[in-house]
Design a protein around this nucleic acid. Structure first.
Lengths: 248, 248
DNA sequence: CGTTTGGTTGAAATGTGTCAAACTTTGTGG
DNA sequence: CCACAAAGTTTGACACATTTCAACCAAACG
């Protein structure tokens, strides 16, 4: 984890403005926050679970994920975090990281001390509202994932994750068509979907054979968006993205 | 759903004070909130998903649960809500119920208009903090459930739910030993655990045969708490209950 | 008392996991 | 730039957890 000093929270501000209507004032205040920037290599931890932490992470660049482990070391991924997301924002109110955060790809990460963030929130109720909403959107995603893992078979589960990734990246302006970055290993997919890697591999082959998607060079191309949404039982409402991103 | 007018939020205030250190002032302010009280019969909805809602529910008495449905009607339960919980508090910030809430037992429910609650929050930042924390604890429970459903087998899953119910009810002062209310049908358990009812039935028999629990007359009796926690891989940290309730 | 709801059982089907090996790609140091 | 190691993917055979279906039973209830 190489470290540097050079704050630039524009990704975060843009995202909060887009999703939660962050005001310019609040955005400017955010921009004045002391940020400690670091680079986390692929596969490394952005935040270690259980650490009595004193700062929040912000994904400035790259793709991260929240996860939990069972006692015997099996991993469940809880949510993926795009650039502009704050993967452990909940720890601000708990004062403790109750969830690990890992890096799917190499990530540029900003760390903001709790103290500074709390101070800012207490002076700006409207910012508190925005951050609260941000934690709620993440919670809504986890709820949908619980439905996904609990009540859909492997095929629909994987298709659903693909729909979500495309949709979120489109909403974030990271892609404009029905393709998107998909820089996962099959092990990561397995841990996100509550499956084994072997079964992910076979399910993937079925999705390709059915002409639904192509996936190479860390990029996913959806060949039949309508049909993928159908087999995935995908309804983007849970993402709580404004009506502007409603282009299907 | 029979309706009456007679607010009494003491359960809520007690709970928020216990878990999040609600101040007396904030509690008193909560007590002055306009509450519309209603009784929801067993099996009925406390909150219907998708409704563009204008109020939050508070469970005053009974046991409720949040749930989501797949397109073809399979149900996944997301979290159980004891008396004092606000099962759709997140809808306050979304302005829409993105999750259904059902009644396990008959429930006495209080409904508070968004407007009143928002108004109170804007005048009392410390209350906002408490309510934010409350949504975060619920989110933490859902994350643990995702781990449970994604990465533990039926036996551990069911055992884990039992541990959670005992632990939460003890923390809420609803029980003092290792027994607790457990008023579920096996269908509800199946929907909470992502299993079929038949398999829940068989797993239940194994838990009983192993001398871990007894369950009759809607009451669960844990015969070997230590061993149940072990097979469940249960670590109550995720519940974010203060150190006072740490008696194992 | 019949009806409904929830619980229990058995047999068979099936989705998914495990194990182990081979193969492919990627990355790296000589 | 090659050679090698490491990481990730693919395959097959098999085991097993869990589901499905169908029937039966028990308790609760109007």
């Amino acid at each position: 984890m190489c470290e540097d000093e050079m704050p630039d929270l524009r990704v975060l501000m843009a995202k909060l403005a887009r999703l939660h209507g962050l005001s310019d004032d609040d955005g400017a205040a955010l921009g004045r926050l002391p940020v400690h920037e670091a680079v986390v290599a692929m596969g490394q931890d952005v935040v270690r679970a259980g650490d009595p932490a004193d700062r929040c992470a912000i994904v400035l660049e790259g793709l991260a994920f929240g996860y939990k482990l069972t006692g015997d070391g099996r991993r469940q991924i809880l949510c993926f975090h795009l650039a502009g997301d704050m993967p452990d924002l909940q720890s601000l109110r708990f004062g403790r990281a109750d969830t690990g955060v890992g890096a799917v790809t190499g990530c540029r990460v900003g760390y903001v001390p709790y103290a500074a963030l709390r101070d800012l929130c207490s002076r700006r109720p409207s910012l508190t509202e925005v951050l609260w909403r941000e934690t709620l959107v993440q919670a809504a995603i986890v709820r949908e994932w619980l439905l996904n893992v609990g009540r859909r078979d492997a095929f629909a589960r994987l298709a659903h994750l693909m729909c979500e990734m495309v949709f979120r990246q489109r909403a974030a302006g990271l892609t404009s068509d029905h393709s998107c970055g998909f820089p996962f290993t099959q092990t990561l997919l397995a841990d996100a979907l509550g499956l084994s890697t072997v079964h992910v591999n076979r399910t993937l082959q079925r999705l390709r054979a059915d002409g639904l998607v192509e996936w190479e060079a860390r990029r996913l191309m959806v060949l039949d968006w309508q049909r993928l949404c159908t087999v995935a039982d995908f309804d983007p409402t849970y993402l709580h993205i404004g009506p502007e991103a409603l282009a299907s």
